[in-house]
Design a protein around this nucleic acid. Sequence first.
DNA 1: TTCTCACCATGACGTGCGTCATATACACCT
DNA 2: AGGTGTATATGACGCACGTCATGGTGAGAA
Lengths: 221, 221
Amino acid sequence: MKSFLIRIPLFRAISPTRLDALETSAELRRFRKGEILFKEGLPAESVWLIQRGWVYLVKRTPQGTPVTIFTVTPEEVLCGFSAVVGQSAYYASAVAATDTTAVRVPHADFARLLRDQPGFAEEVLAIYHTRMRHLAEAISLAQAPVEQRLAYALLRLRATFGKTVPITHHELSHMAGTRWETSIRILSAMKRKGWIISSRGKMTLLLPRKLRALLDAHPAG
Amino acid sequence: MKSFLIRIPLFRAISPTRLDALETSAELRRFRKGEILFKEGLPAESVWLIQRGWVYLVKRTPQGTPVTIFTVTPEEVLCGFSAVVGQSAYYASAVAATDTTAVRVPHADFARLLRDQPGFAEEVLAIYHTRMRHLAEAISLAQAPVEQRLAYALLRLRATFGKTVPITHHELSHMAGTRWETSIRILSAMKRKGWIISSRGKMTLLLPRKLRALLDAHPAG
DNA sequence: TTCTCACCATGACGTGCGTCATATACACCT
DNA sequence: AGGTGTATATGACGCACGTCATGGTGAGAA
């Protein structure tokens, strides 16, 4: 048993008996690219642990255009955490960015783990903290020129996918908070400079150092 | 004793003996407006609990202009949390926005609380979660027009200060990620419409509903 | 093969807002 | 009273980037 729970790194310190108990309420689910795990505004009933694949957290702006506020990878495991801390609704939607398998855990069960598995809450805190650091970075970048935001998005993608990342300009532009036309324009310029190459739905980073240099640019004052 | 620790809401569930022990290593410190609690990039050695006053978390962009990524109020208590989760450096600076009193707790002591005070980690998690929600909101707003970002900043200020908020255009513009000239221009327009009034260093929100309406604007799609 | 539908690519145009420049007013100090 | 520094206010100008428009290309379906 506990076939799928045991594979989740976050659970490695949980006792086997405990995992067995979880097994009865947890549920393994598969999503195809583009499908929705949960929706912004709906009651937060479950926590999701990403096992394979890749999930965008998307939030609507006041004018209705969706913005990708974060990308959850298998290492970053967690989403839908609103369910645990007494929030009644998810504050963002989760959309499968690739084919994804995820474990759904009812919020009560997850809360119980937090309460009585020593050390578990700290691990969750650490995850949350790195995510927060990323969000803080994203905010400070939000005012930077689009080229830098795209470079940042590409580098984060590279960190999980390697030098060739499967992504369209459309998706990339969402992550960078811009429009696909702009993304194409700027990436075309990068191609001309030999920093990257790209074809339908994939981009390959040839000179990531150049991208990183954009982000370190002016360490002024 | 434990004079200052006992006043911190986050510690209300900690046993008195434990607080006594903390007292020996914790330290109460006062900062005048503009002084720095800790600096981005420096080794993260302490967690800070805000008791009175108001702290900006500020991060530098690649081009060196500082951006306020978050504002810590006494209810939101915590900052400098990098110290606890094994991060070696603070990812942002903390600047006193008003005269502030804060408690410095060495990271080891705070980590110990997390480990062996049942329920404490969950409380911290909840704080972190609401902060995350705010950051997510800020990110989704980052692409909205400046007028909306200013409205959002004003409303958040109102939530902690009441209808009259002590802030300059300069500070406000930082929170909204824009320039003070723009802030003045847009707030002047709001004044002409009778939504707010302002004088040197303070602004009064007469019609907060109008501001909120800006943020609910187009619930499209 | 051809049809269709994403995705990729590039041009033209308008504008929100950053930037610079200049002026007035209030607070505080001596 | 006068001097200095910071906050407020407004105009002029330019550019990055959003928006709209048009066309090319590869992939999968019938």
